[in-house]
């Protein structure tokens, strides 16, 4: 019985030994490192090259896991206090730059908004972006603080500010701080 047990354990030893050696020959540490590095490098390159939405990354993730809308994507954002139009930040651009393929208007409506963070007034230029059609899903805002009827021409903003551009089609509106109001 003892002899049978010895034979059995020796057989298991040999089997395990040959298996491990065989695995070591086929899957050396270098092979493992090489494959792992390929995966990591591939992920790094693909991650950097593939297009991605910065705004999704920039959105705040709340405790419940949902993402919050960026402040500049909503009409009540302080810089939008005198805006009448569609937000470029919801049409493929940002709150201060036109979406690719559109051009910024030469002329603009300028309003005064109070920044709640420092309580100061700022002069904000509402330039239209021109030369592309409207984006149906973009957010429309009509805050127009300080706007006056058409007979007060300089304070009237129901105007297509793309009028001075070669491409006159209205796409969306950006809100750029020009300077502090003083």
């Amino acid at each position: 019985m003892k002899r049978f047990t010895n034979i059995l354990t020796q057989s298991i030893d040999r089997l395990a030994d040959s298996g491990v050696r065989s695995a070591a020959r086929g899957h050396g540490r270098r092979s493992f490192l090489e494959k792992t590095s390929r995966v990591l490098l591939g992920a790094a390159v693909v991650g950097a090259v593939l297009p991605f939405d910065r705004r999704v990354n920039a959105a705040t993730i709340r405790a419940d896991g949902d993402t919050e809308t960026l402040p500049e994507d909503i009409c009540s954002y302080w810089r939008h206090c005198a805006l009448d139009g569609f937000l470029c930040s919801t049409a493929g651009g940002t709150s201060s730059s036109c979406p690719p393929g559109s051009t910024v208007s030469a002329v603009a409506w300028i309003g005064t908004c109070t920044n709640p963070d420092d309580g100061k007034d700022y002069l904000v230029s509402y330039n239209d972006c021109c030369g592309k059609p409207l984006v149906d899903a973009s957010t429309y805002c009509y805050t127009s603080q300080g706007e006056r009827p058409g007979y007060r021409m300089g304070l009237y903003n129901d105007i297509n500010w793309c009028m001075a551009n070669t491409e006159k089609g209205y796409h969306c509106t950006v809100a750029v701080v020009v300077s502090a109001a003083k």
């Binding site: 030469a106 002329v107 300028i110 309003g111 005064t112 007034d121 230029s125 300077s179 109001a181 003083k182």
Partner: peptide, 21 residues
């Protein structure tokens, strides 16, 4: 706050939109 602005701010607010900076 809106009144009594400097000439610079009044230019930006009331002229620069069309005459530009």
């Amino acid at each position: 706050a809106a009144e009594g602005m400097s000439a610079e701010s009044n230019y930006i607010l009331r002229c620069a939109g069309c005459h530009r900076m």
